[in-house]
Design a protein around this nucleic acid. Structure first.
Lengths: 259, 259
DNA sequence: CGTATGATTGAGCCTACTCAACTATTGTGG
DNA sequence: CCACAATAGTTGAGTAGGCTCAATCATACG
């Protein structure tokens, strides 16, 4: 599961960093990564671009020729509705690759904004070529990741468009929790949630008012505890049941992978 | 755009068939397909499995080791909510590959049901290996397709979770229209829509009652015309504006592809 | 300490839902 | 070819849940 650390990068800024490259940590959760593959992946993380809380990194419509590996920090992509409403599409953490959905387009389809200070590693789309030609296992994993995001987005659609506010909140908390656990093996049921209630609402189709009321009601029931910006999930099973939650991150069928 | 036809397959059952393999027709819309690639793709369509209207092909939870190419017919994937509600996730037509979102899982995440009589070509997941190892351009295209589905699903989420009934209907009609145009170059603004109003409602988060009222209101406005199961879009621009529609199918950035 | 941002709480409203009856269409067997 | 059944679509009336608007309270930061 975990990967022997041998890199000498010097980032220590955030709790969700690992001594190894974040990308390797994440991919290494699912497959064994060879030294050649490790080197190939490291080449995607050569450039560094620090970002600060609240900063917009790109906007929908901007020219789009790069992808980004998240080194640390929280970010989200969002899109605006004709009526001015906003939809938070996806929250990104260390080890995530940002930009895949727009691979096929010349221009970005969403806006990217940093929630906290952080660091991105931009690399050109065309650098995927090297991976595709030289590293079939990594390619397969990337394809599988992209396909999996579809399944996750369907879960989001299910929760966001058809469930009660309580269930939507439960879904959001559990999905963030499940994502964080992959690159943060020591994490238990407590994590920092740097989103405000408007962000949360925009992610699950509620107003900040309903989010506030619902969070209070759920906390009163003892489903979780808030303190500062931290969330502690107290009744995991009940939360899961409430929104019919499936963890799409914990395991993966790699039996059909090449080699 | 279109591909020189040279195959001698014998299907003529449905209007959306082409003399070439459906998969080649679809991929060939975006890149030039070489003869070797064509042969590789044909090997994915060797097996045939006829399906009849209403039939359930697999259910969520079933063992999942295959993908399917749609040869002809309409199908959809759907999932059920804890309260018994149903969500139609995606409609599939000739040339589509079914099952990508579940690539990473041992078990299906959704149910697959045939809307009309049709024909599927099942092939094992592991057959993707050959593509990944031998056909980097096809691999890139598959990766790009998977990533694009994410962008499309975000559009769906935007419409389904946050727009008025009229806009949702507009979105559904336009997205089906955009998909059909790819493998059906002669199609204009008229197409057969074999979904009933309950299916439509389950696809965009409305009840059949609201779908009925909304369809009637939109038809009265002259946005489209219904007759039998056929839909003719009369005011494309107005429909597009109503739901802020982006055609994710018509074009694709292939500039960064290998070779 | 003052300001800005974020969270909470209350009151009233609006839209799509539910429930229910009815009409239209399609398909099948006598 | 017609009669009947089953499925699909339409229409009306009443309801409820989350939204809007708005005021107040809490927290963080310079």
């Amino acid at each position: 599961m975990s990967v022997a650390s041998k890199s000498n990068t010097k980032q220590t800024a955030s709790a969700d960093d690992s001594p190894d490259s974040c990308l390797v940590t994440k991919l290494g959760y699912y497959i064994e990564v060879t030294d050649e593959e490790r080197e190939l992946l490291a080449s995607l993380e050569k450039a560094e671009q620090p970002v600060s809380a609240g900063e917009q990194i790109f906007a929908g419509g901007d020219k789009n020729d790069k992808l980004f590996v998240v080194k640390h920090g929280w970010l989200y992509t969002c899109t605006y509705l004709p009526d001015g409403g906003r939809l938070v599409v996806r929250v990104y953490h260390a080890g995530d690759i940002i930009g895949m959905p727009a691979l096929s387009f010349n221009h970005h389809t969403v806006n990217l904004r940093a929630v906290t200070d952080g660091c991105l590693c931009p690399f050109p789309k065309s650098q995927l070529d090297v991976v595709i030609k030289d590293a079939p296992r990594i390619t397969t994993l990337l394809l599988t990741f992209a396909a999996r995001e579809e399944a996750i987005l369907v879960d989001t659609l299910r929760a966001t468009s058809r469930m009660r506010p309580e269930a939507r909140i439960a879904y959001l908390l559990l999905s963030i929790h499940a994502r964080l656990k992959i690159t943060n093996s020591k994490m238990q049921n407590c994590f920092r949630l740097p989103l405000n209630q408007t962000d949360i609402g925009d992610a699950i189709g509620l107003t900040n008012v309903t989010v506030s009321r619902t969070l209070s009601a759920m906390e009163a029931k003892g489903l979780f505890k808030r303190s500062g910006g931290d969330i502690t999930l107290l009744a995991l099973e009940e939360l899961k049941e409430q929104c019919d939650f499936q963890d799409r991150h914990a395991s993966m069928d790699t039996s059909w992978f090449p080699y």
